[in-house]
Nucleic acid binder design. Sequence first.
DNA 1: TTTTGAGCAGGGGTTTTCCCTAATTTATTT
DNA 2: AAATAAATTAGGGAAAACCCCTGCTCAAAA
Lengths: 219, 219
Amino acid sequence: MNKTIHISIVDDHTLFRNGLASLISVFPDYQVLFSAANGLDFIAQLNQNQLPDIVLLDINMPEMDGYATCEWIKQNHPSIKVLALSTMDADNSIIKMIKCGAKGYILKDADLTELKLAITELMQLGFFYNELISRKVMQSINLLMDDKSELSAFIKLNENEIAFLKLACSEKTYQEIAVEMFKSEKTIDGYRADLFKKLNVTSRVGLVMYAIKNGVITL
Amino acid sequence: MNKTIHISIVDDHTLFRNGLASLISVFPDYQVLFSAANGLDFIAQLNQNQLPDIVLLDINMPEMDGYATCEWIKQNHPSIKVLALSTMDADNSIIKMIKCGAKGYILKDADLTELKLAITELMQLGFFYNELISRKVMQSINLLMDDKSELSAFIKLNENEIAFLKLACSEKTYQEIAVEMFKSEKTIDGYRADLFKKLNVTSRVGLVMYAIKNGVITL
DNA sequence: TTTTGAGCAGGGGTTTTCCCTAATTTATTT
DNA sequence: AAATAAATTAGGGAAAACCCCTGCTCAAAA
């Protein structure tokens, strides 16, 4: 007498989204209610559908990414459990997703068994933590102890810093960026210095690499 | 009396690979023979399986990427048709894949209809060119005419340039890079200038962005 | 009220990057 | 062997990036 588990998938790659849905639908207990290309799409479709038990949520998406979507779900439908689904074992996204309210985290190159395990544990225990996550959590705690917190989960970037960071990922000079942001060159210089310290980098290239690794910009 | 089309999938993301297989298997005419995580894996499995008609081939993979795999297939099993499958509408990979022998190119956020269309056209016509590709091909031809070829398909980077490009994607100064490459600073300066012209960028950030977009480095 | 801290702006300096031109050395071709 | 092309090294100068220190404002906290 297993109740059917209702699932929703949010990922910007259509083939992946549909493929995963097809994969999941093989199991009689699981039913994919609907899938969406991004957070906005998900929210829009939510009104026209039954509430899912679990959302498989991609992190890097246009329009509205995984972090924002996860926060929204936590606020508006706390009963929905989010299983973050990411392509990168990138250092920072795990903790950040968990802070945003995700109940589990799984890599896209996991196999079907692991996905099933994650979903069932999510339903039974309410969360799914594998060694990958625990390891990252431990790391982040150590880093907190060292007061050298490097993980973006604990790095709060304000809007100006994010806007600047995005513009830094271009061939614009800081001067041009200043004009574009309606700020003085010196203010921009301040943003740069701030970010160097916060992100623990020492050059503009470091900023760019950080931004790309952490999905601040999409290529 | 449609003959079954035998397909193989090569992609490093397990969930995507399996999902796609599941999606394709819905159609009775299509059969997924086997799937592999990268080029080496594919070659290894090829010996133990029937020869596929079509290989859905991802571009960015560890161990042996899409370009190398495609070349290998063209050399060793020219009857197999490669449908390149990429996540990025990145400018350069299309032409490059086609030069490597791919018979078609499709984005991962295509929908199932488009995938089916690509596969059937591939079987019937031997190739699949959609507007995305034609547009890119036209561009590259124009660029050739202008003698300002911008597409990496026509950009030949030698080993030094590639080594330098990789090192440029770091916080090292050109001076440090020179030491690491056992070259004078001025030689490095020459590499930089060469690449600026070849890749049509104007700053080190441009180099980094190019390298990442085109898989010269992996994050 | 005083203090603390974040955000913004400036001065003035060093280092790195960028962009020329040009002289070598090395490889390839005729 | 001579000519040509390609790779490497070089110098000098301008722009950009980087760095440290100071001061101002505003608002929240003590």
